[in-house]
C-alpha cells in the first residue's frame, strides 16, 4: 500500500528536510521500519536500542491513535496518512518525598 508518513519538525533534519515521505507498506510497523531503513538517523529517536517503538512516540493513522487500533500491526490502505507526533514530557528529578 502506498501511504504517507508525516514527519514532525524536530525530525525533519534526519529525513532529508522533508515534512512527509511516501512509503509502501502493509502495516504501521512495516511503514516505520521502511522509513528508518531509508533514513537511519531517525531510528534512535523513534526506537529503543532493543528495537521497540519509544513510549513517548505517538503514532496516528488518519487522526486516530494506533493504540486504539491494532497498534503497530494496524493494516494500511492506499493513501493512508501516518503521523508521528512527539510526546512532550519532562519534569524535575523524582524525589523520594514526592507524594
Amino acid at each position: 500500500m502506498a501511504v504517507k508518513v508525516v514527519i514532525p519538525t524536530p525530525l525533519r533534519q534526519f529525513a532529508g528536510k522533508q515534512d512527509s515521505i511516501e512509503i509502501s507498506a502493509g502495516t504501521v510497523a512495516e511503514a516505520l521500519s521502511g522509513l528508518t531503513n531509508q533514513y537511519s538517523e531517525l531510528r534512535r529517536h523513534l526506537f529503543t536500542d532493543e528495537g521497540k517503538l519509544r513510549s513517548f512516540v505517538n503514532v496516528y493513522l488518519n487522526d486516530e491513535d494506533i493504540r486504539y487500533l491494532e497498534n503497530d500491526q494496524t493494516p494500511l490502505k492506499d493513501n493512508d496518512v501516518i503521523s508521528i507526533v512527539p510526546s512532550i514530557a519532562g519534569g524535575r528529578p523524582a524525589p523520594s518525598f514526592c507524594r
Binding site: 491513535d65 510526546s87 514530557a89 524525589p95
Partner: peptide, 26 residues
Amino acid sequence: DRLLPRESVDFESERNRFLIDPKEQI
C-alpha cells in the same frame, strides 16, 4: 499513564512530571 506510563507511581506525579495532551498539541 495510558499515553506515557510512569516508571514509578510512588515517585512520579504532577509535582515532578508534565505531559502535554497530544490532542491539544496537534
